[in-house]
Amino acid sequence: MEFNSETLNESGKQCRARDELRAKVLNLKDLVGYQDGSVSSRMIVSTRTGSVTLFSFDENEGLSEHTAPFDAVVTILEGECEVWIQGETHQMKEGNTIIFPANVPHALSAVTRFKMSLTMIRDTEHD
């Protein structure tokens, strides 16, 4: 899997690009495009307490099993995918949302090309 991030670092250019999204009506699935054979992302909010990142996955692409130190809310914006949380499989499609609990193994794989929104909520009491 090739990973292509449009805005992973905190350079001034990317931060200004996120600022331009504020106070506007947005269609989230239009803010990240597909790229053949890869996963693309675009961070649209990043704060000390959390972030919102949009992803697009080409068919058969995915994220291998991993954990995160805080809860993550995933909403499918377009297409279909399979999600695994601690060994349990979930079929997801546009409009579905699932919460990945902190420190629990999870993974996902594209059934079709799909886009998702990932909202990470940091537990600042344990930072």
Rank of each mutant, 00 (worst) to 15 (best):
D123Y: 12
E6G: 08
S109P: 06
I76M: 04
S38E: 08
T67G: 01
S38A: 10
W84S: 08
N60G: 12
T89D: 15
F57P: 03
V32G: 07
T67R: 00
E6K: 10
T124C: 14
T119P: 11
F55N: 00
M120C: 04
L8I: 14
L26S: 03
I121A: 07
T53P: 15
T67Y: 03
Q91G: 14
S40G: 10
V52I: 14
M120P: 05
E80G: 08
V73R: 09
A17K: 14
I121K: 01
I44M: 03
D30L: 04
A23D: 10
M120H: 06
L26E: 12
E20K: 15
E94N: 10
T7G: 13
V45T: 11
E20I: 15
F57Q: 01
N27V: 02
H90C: 03
L28F: 10
T47Y: 01
W84M: 11
K93I: 11
Q86N: 07
V104Y: 03
S109V: 09
R22M: 07
A17F: 08
F100H: 02
V32C: 09
V74Y: 09
N60C: 04
I85Q: 00
C81M: 11
T89P: 07
I85F: 07
G95M: 01
A110H: 00
D30N: 08
L77T: 04
C15Y: 15
E94T: 12
F114I: 02
T119N: 10
K115S: 06
C81V: 01
F3A: 13
R122N: 11
T97W: 13
T89R: 15
D123C: 08
T124Q: 09
I121H: 06
L77F: 02
S56D: 05
K115W: 06
L28W: 02
R16H: 15
S56I: 05
T89M: 14
D36F: 02
A102Q: 10
E2Y: 03
L118H: 02
V45A: 09
F70W: 03
H90V: 02
V45S: 04
L31P: 00
F3Q: 09
S109A: 12
L21N: 01
V83R: 01
D58G: 04
V73H: 11
E61H: 05
V111M: 15
I85H: 05
R48C: 10
V52L: 03
M43D: 07
G87T: 09
T53R: 13
V111Y: 14
S56K: 00
L26R: 01
E94I: 00
S46T: 04
E78F: 06
N4V: 15
R22A: 08
D123Q: 09
R18T: 03
K24R: 14
R48P: 13
A107C: 08
T49M: 14
